[in-house]
Simulated scan of single mutants.
Amino acid sequence: MSQTIESRLEAKGIALPAAAAPAANYVPYVISGNLLYLSGQLPMENGKVGVTGLVGTEVALEDAQRAAELCAINILAQAKAALGGDLSRIVRIIKLNGFVASGAGFTDQHLVINGASNLIADILGDAGRHARAAVGMAALPMNAAVEIDAIIEIA
């Protein structure tokens, strides 16, 4: 499946970045049995947070969806690092938890996190279909517009 994942990424013009280092006192991932738990991934792009601010007031929906896509790319990059470069070990994305820095009255968090869900499903096919949460937050670390963590079944 790794070639399939890699070829799908390539077909979309996506090059996975180096996995982000933790920004505080935590580890980027934990493997327990056949589950890979990934810490929250921010919309990092070229070494910095690519989309900042509150969605609905400072950030447009389309830009927030792009932030969610960046989070998904970083989830795949972190998974690749955790799995020794072997994305074929991914059996299924179990769950994504999406957090959206939301301005007052913004209630389309589910549409924001679709940016990540759609990308993951496009890249992984049926193995990318997952349960998820989409939650509004007052603020996120480093003023990120979106943060997403993941639980992944691995072989």
Rank of each mutant, 00 (worst) to 15 (best):
S7M: 12
R8V: 10
E10V: 11
E10M: 08
E10K: 14
A11K: 00
K12M: 11
K12D: 01
G13R: 04
A18L: 12
A19G: 04
A20Y: 00
A21V: 14
A21G: 05
P22Y: 05
A23T: 11
A24W: 00
Y26P: 10
P28V: 12
P28R: 10
Y29S: 14
V30M: 14
I31D: 07
N34I: 06
N34Q: 15
N34F: 01
L35A: 13
L35Q: 15
L36H: 05
L36R: 00
Y37L: 14
G40S: 11
Q41P: 07
Q41G: 08
Q41V: 13
G47L: 06
G47P: 10
G47M: 06
V49T: 09
G50R: 02
G50S: 11
V51A: 02
V51C: 01
V51W: 00
T52L: 08
G53L: 13
L54A: 11
E58D: 15
E58F: 04
A60Y: 04
A64R: 01
A64Q: 02
Q65M: 06
Q65D: 03
A68L: 02
E69W: 00
E69N: 03
E69M: 10
L70P: 02
C71I: 07
A72K: 10
I73Q: 02
I73P: 10
N74V: 11
A77M: 08
Q78H: 07
A79K: 03
A79W: 08
A81D: 15
A81L: 08
A82E: 09
A82M: 12
L83V: 09
L83M: 13
G84M: 10
G85W: 09
G85E: 05
R89N: 13
R89Q: 14
V91G: 08
V91K: 14
I93G: 09
I94V: 15
L96H: 03
L96R: 01
N97L: 05
G98I: 08
F99L: 11
V100F: 05
A104E: 04
G105L: 03
G105T: 09
T107Q: 13
D108F: 02
D108L: 15
Q109V: 14
H110S: 15
L111R: 13
A116W: 01
L119T: 01
L119G: 09
I120R: 03
I120K: 01
